[in-house]
Simulated scan of single mutants.
Amino acid sequence: MTLLLRDTETKTAEAPAGDTPGGETPPEAAPVATACPKCGAPVEPGQDWCLNCGEAQASRRLALPGKRAIGTVLALTGVLVVGAVAAAYAALDQNSPATPAGTTQVAQVPAPQPSAAAPAPVDTAPSDAAPSSTLPPTTGSTDVPPASSTPAPSLPRTTTPSIPTTPSTGATGSTGSTGSTSTGSDSSSKGDTTSTTRTSTTPELPDPVAIRLDPTAASLYDPYRRDIADATTADPKKALDGEAGTSFPITVADGAESIGAGLVIDLGSKQGVREVDVTTKTPGFKIELYATDETDLPPDITDTRWAHLKDIRDVGTDTDGKVKVDLGAGTTKYRHVLLWLTTPPTDGFTARLSEVRVFG
């Protein structure tokens, strides 16, 4: 009996402390729940992400992959950048020239020799004997062409190097003149050639040609119905009949200071007008020349369809009653030409147009 009790106590002492009588394992302690640091929602142990806001938990943040790889990439990138900068600097330092090109070129130019610029001037007096065609070159100088038979003018010494020039034919017909002499000859000859070329290439206008006009092409232009005494008896055709003894008169009342009427000529078609000749027996009046390209005459002189060409004061006073009016090249073409009389003659109140000729 005593042995059984001892055996039982021995088994009880050898049993593990955590085992309960009867061989049953005690239950484990329940895991402690945590809260999300961002939204406060409960997070189970071992849960890497919050199911409410998606925030990474502490266990996930501590175990984020790629930290070592990112550090390695950044370190390698820094090494490569430093190496590239060093290589570029070395390449630039090797390619840069030691001295500027311009400085080297200037240093290669030899110093000018004043003695070699030009030979000393030789004053030769004219003699009765015929000079030789050429003289031997000056000793010690190979840059200056041989002098011609004509004595060269005295030239001042310069510090510029002697530069041989292409010989040119001067006024005396020689082909070996010095550089300065040939340059002057070339300049003058080129200037003469240019002047001659410009003169020859400028086209000259031919002489004006009289436009053939029938006497019926002339008519009175009186848009303001002025009191012209001889308007009913005067015939405008007499201004174009080619007879110096006839005329077309325009008379105003005594004491009138203006006329305000004129003679209009129909050219039959649009033509360029270069000159108008007027002959009168009553000099001293004033004419304003107008023209239009319209087939029908404008209603009055202020109409913009009239083109003002020129004014003639004191018609025929100093030219024995004749005047020529130059109108240029006649590039603009007109259908009608108007001689608009504005003031009466110096003596009397009748202006007579003996002959009117139009040139194109």
Rank of each mutant, 00 (worst) to 15 (best):
T317Q: 15
K67S: 04
T332F: 03
S127G: 15
G191S: 15
P26V: 13
V315R: 03
D222V: 07
E294I: 00
D318F: 07
K11M: 11
A231G: 05
A307P: 01
Q57C: 06
Y290M: 12
T304W: 04
T159D: 13
P151K: 09
G284C: 05
K324L: 07
D320S: 14
D303Q: 02
L76R: 05
R157F: 12
P215I: 05
G284S: 03
G78Y: 04
T104N: 01
A171Y: 12
G102K: 14
G179M: 03
E14G: 11
P26F: 13
E288N: 03
G83R: 03
L297Q: 11
I312W: 06
P283I: 13
G184L: 14
S187R: 04
L76W: 02
T10G: 10
P236H: 12
T216S: 11
Q94R: 15
L3W: 01
L327G: 09
P65S: 15
D143L: 13
A13H: 08
L62F: 07
T251P: 01
L289N: 01
S182W: 00
F359V: 04
L297M: 09
E24N: 02
V264N: 12
P27T: 10
P146Y: 06
D123I: 13
T304G: 12
L155D: 09
L205P: 15
S168K: 03
G268V: 05
D320G: 14
P283K: 15
S187G: 08
T317D: 14
K38E: 03
T246R: 06
S96Y: 04
T280C: 11
